[in-house]
Amino acid sequence: MIVNDIFMKIPKDIILSKGKNKIQLIFSDLNKVSLDAEFLRVKSPSAEVRGHGPDDAITVYGKKSVLISKLELVGNYAIRIFFDDNHSTGIYTWNYLDELYKNRDNIWNDYISELRLKKLNRE
């Protein structure tokens, strides 16, 4: 049986915070990471956001106060996140979540520069 490293990326628990503005992933080694709703929303892997190619991708803005209303498991490999702005087509695989929190700072900084460049803002 091949145990690929994805097993390390599957959280044991996914906790939606009381304020609904972040999720916390707890792994079996008790390592914990937390991701903000805004970050997850603007980086949704949905085709609505990413388009069907880099040229189609859109910059999501004005989501500073977006909240998460529901989480749903997708098979063995992902969660689907329902946001309160009715966006719910993003399927976040364990790999994608891993990528998001490992590179959180870079991704976030790039996003902020992108907003600035396009004269958009978070509010």
């Binding site: 049986m1 097993f7 044991k12 996914i14 906790i15 939606l16 749903e72 498991l73 969660i79």
Partner: peptide, 14 residues
């Protein structure tokens, strides 16, 4: 044996 390998995360709402 693979049953033990499958992790089903708990979704918890605070």
């Amino acid at each position: 044996s693979s049953e033990k390998l499958q992790i089903v995360p708990n979704i918890i709402y605070e």
